[in-house]
């Protein structure tokens, strides 16, 4: 921000300035912890967090926890996608049902469904299945809505072309409607996958079962703050990287369709 030339153009590109801001923040935190300005027990210095990161990495728990979280989240998103696409198709194909229930699905998409986890905890039990079901439930509504939106938005001229070629209803769906609705369906799956990741990590943390969420909860319970901070920063980094990849993948898919 300060690095601005007289012409008004910034001296440094935004990415470099961003990295400098992060470096300055880390240096300030390190200095404050070392000088005793902040409580180094509850807010350990970045160097202590870095060595904590090394410890959980060498114990192998970090990699294992990440695999567990991602397998659960992708499993949940896959189940949620199948159910969500089926619901979206049903709402599209049977117009009265679409008119009656789309508002319900939209309400479910904005409802805090994750708060229902105690119900599933008592029905399913304190295990990975609760996490998987909560992840799947979170991603069904957006996928259903986006599927219906995509199918509703197929241009009539494309459907007329299909009819002109005497396509059966099955061919009409797979050769015309589904490819035309794919960008919207993929947007739904992207949103659903994000919801699945959020729900899975959240439920892992709350019921202390599973991957990265449980790891943070356990380290917090042990008052091992450097390792706990390392775990939290790792979850943030993984989420950011995941979001970035999904965003790029969606852009690539949309540009290629």
């Amino acid at each position: 921000m300060a690095s601005v030339a007289a012409s008004g153009r910034p001296l440094l590109p935004p990415l470099v300035t961003r990295l400098l801001v992060i470096a300055a923040g880390v240096a300030l935190w390190e200095g404050a912890a070392r000088l005793g300005w902040i409580n180094a027990f509850t807010a350990p210095a970045p160097s202590a967090i870095w060595s904590g990161f090394g410890k959980i990495l060498s114990e192998g728990v970090l990699g294992y926890s990440m695999v567990v979280t991602f397998v659960t989240a992708f499993g949940a998103a896959a189940c949620g996608s199948v159910v969500g696409i089926a619901i979206g198709y049903f709402l599209h194909i049977w117009k009265p049902a679409g008119a009656a229930y789309t508002a319900w699905v939209a309400a479910a998409a904005s409802a805090p469904l994750v708060l229902l986890y105690p119900l599933f905890l008592v029905i399913i039990g304190r295990n990975m299945w609760t996490t998987l079901v909560m992840g799947a439930i979170g991603c069904i509504p957006p996928i259903a809505l986006k599927t219906k939106e995509g199918l509703d938005g197929v241009r009539p001229v494309l459907l007329n072309v299909g009819r002109a070629f005497n396509l059966t209803s099955k061919q009409q769906f797979w050769m015309i409607m589904f490819p035309a609705a794919l960008p919207s369906i993929f947007t739904g799956i992207r949103i659903g996958l994000l919801f699945a990741i959020l729900n899975v990590i959240g439920i892992e943390f709350l019921i202390s079962v599973g991957g990265l969420g449980q790891l943070i909860a356990t380290l917090g319970d042990r008052f091992d703050y450097p390792q706990m901070y390392a775990g939290i920063f790792f979850v943030i980094l993984v989420s950011v990287a995941f979001f970035w990849i999904i965003e790029r993948l969606e852009q690539w898919l949309l540009s290629s369709t």
Binding site: M1, P10, T17, I201, L212, G213, I216, G220, F243
Partner: peptide
């Protein structure tokens, strides 16, 4: 300029699971 520098932080931090901050907030 401020947006160019800082908005990506907010954009990419927004979808992270905030519940993981709870142990820090409980300590604080």
């Amino acid at each position: 300029r401020t947006g160019d520098i800082f908005e990506p932080f907010i954009h990419y931090l927004a979808p992270t699971p905030k519940i993981v901050f709870l142990p820090i907030l409980l300590v604080l």
